[in-house]
């Protein structure tokens, strides 16, 4: 097994890693906003319901959530889940949406009350105030904690292998089990480092672009 052919096969595994990562972000970023609004809602039952939900999702291990979504339909409904990949995406999206929602909430609540009031005085509606005045400031303020979570997500994708979604770490383990090759396992670290490096550069760039918001 040459370095080249190992790299090619690991890249194949990294494609799954990347897909889990990208699809999770695609679903959890907007879902997190919905949850954030729910947890700030003036309607009490909704607010309590959402906060209990966030408590549960943040309170139990992601690995357990993956197991629950994967096994429970088969146990209780006799309707086995057919897509392991789909299960992973659902579990990751819900989990990360809850973490994101708290970051969003912190960001939104950190914007000075007087800006809402100024908007109201000018006769803007609540959605207008949110999207035209508040949102971009929130994005600027939450960039650092969000980049933390997003980088964590890159590495959390490795959890998908507990239900045998064959991502890069699993591919590397397969080398050890079927070809008696151990070094690919450690070589995977380079793939993660490179990808997180690119993300870090991207976050730095975005933060600079949002720099004009400094008050």
């Amino acid at each position: 097994m040459s370095l080249f052919s190992v790299t090619v096969q690991l890249l194949e595994g990294f494609r799954t890693t990347f897909l889990v990562f990208a699809l999770t972000l695609l679903f959890s970023l907007p879902l997190g906003l919905v949850i954030a609004f729910g947890s700030m809602s003036g309607f009490r039952p909704l607010r309590y319901f959402v906060r209990v939900f966030v408590w549960i999702i943040r309170g139990i291990p992601l690995m357990l959530q993956i197991f629950i979504i994967f096994y429970v339909p088969g146990f209780l409904l006799g309707q086995p889940v057919s897509s392991r990949f789909g299960t992973a995406i659902i579990a990751f999206s819900i989990n990360y949406a809850c973490y994101f929602s708290e970051i969003y909430r912190g960001g939104i609540e950190s914007v000075s009350r007087s800006q809402f009031e100024a908007g109201q005085v000018l006769g803007m509606t609540r959605p207008q105030i949110f999207f035209r005045v508040i949102l971009l400031q929130v994005i600027k303020r939450i960039m650092a904690p969000m980049s933390n979570e997003i980088i964590t997500l890159v590495k959390d994708t490795a959890l998908a292998r507990v239900i045998m979604v064959v991502e890069i770490l699993k591919v590397a383990e397969n080398f050890a089990s079927s070809q008696a090759l151990i070094w690919p396992l450690f070589y995977t670290g380079a793939f993660y480092l490179l990808f997180v490096g690119l993300l870090t550069l991207l976050f730095g760039y975005t933060e600079r672009k949002l720099g004009y918001f400094r008050v």
């Binding site: 339909p73 088969g74 309707q79 086995p80 889940v81 057919s82 897509s83 990949f85 789909g86 299960t87 995406i89 659902i90």
Partner: peptide
């Protein structure tokens, strides 16, 4: 996505 992954089965 969630429906697709629930239906079918073995």
């Amino acid at each position: 996505v969630s429906l697709a992954s629930c239906s079918g089965g073995s």
